[in-house]
Amino acid sequence: MYEKIYLALTLLILTISHATAQNAPSDKIVGTWLSEEKDVKIEIYKSGDKYFRKLIWGKTMYEADGKTSKKDVKNKNEKLRSRNLKDLIMLKDFEYNDGVWDGGEIYDTYSGKTYSCTMKLEKGKLNIRGYIGISLLGRTALGKS
Results as ranks from 00 to 15, higher is better:
T20S: 12
S47R: 08
W57D: 07
G103Q: 00
A24H: 07
K123F: 08
W101V: 00
Y45R: 04
G66K: 13
G133T: 12
E95P: 03
G31I: 08
G133D: 14
I128F: 00
I89C: 03
S17A: 08
G58E: 05
L126Y: 02
T68P: 02
E95W: 00
L12F: 13
D39E: 14
Y131S: 06
V30W: 01
L12Y: 02
T10K: 06
A8N: 03
N75A: 02
I13N: 06
D102S: 09
T10A: 15
K50G: 03
S145N: 12
G58T: 05
S26H: 02
Y6A: 14
A19G: 14
L80I: 01
L137P: 04
K50L: 05
S82P: 03
I89Y: 08
Y62G: 05
L7T: 13
L136V: 15
L121I: 04
K120L: 14
N77R: 13
I132F: 15
S145H: 10
D72L: 01
K59H: 12
D102T: 03
D49I: 08
G31W: 03
G31A: 10
M119P: 00
G130W: 04
T20P: 06
Q22M: 09
D27S: 05
L126M: 08
D65H: 05
C117L: 03
G99W: 02
D65S: 10
K79T: 14
N127T: 07
A24S: 13
E43M: 12
S69I: 00
L55K: 00
W101M: 03
T68W: 10
V100Q: 06
R139W: 02
M1P: 09
E36V: 03
D102L: 06
T20R: 14
D102W: 01
A64E: 11
L136I: 15
S47K: 07
K38M: 11
L121C: 01
K92T: 06
R139Y: 03
G130E: 05
L12N: 07
L85K: 09
K67D: 11
G48I: 09
D87S: 05
L34A: 02
D98V: 11
K54T: 12
G124A: 10
C117M: 09
D98Q: 11
T32I: 10
K28V: 15
S26I: 01
R139V: 10
W101N: 01
C117D: 08
G99C: 04
G143I: 02
R83D: 11
K92H: 14
I128A: 05
L14S: 15
K70T: 05
A19T: 11
R139P: 04
V40T: 04
L12T: 14
K28S: 15
K4E: 14
G124Q: 13
G130A: 13
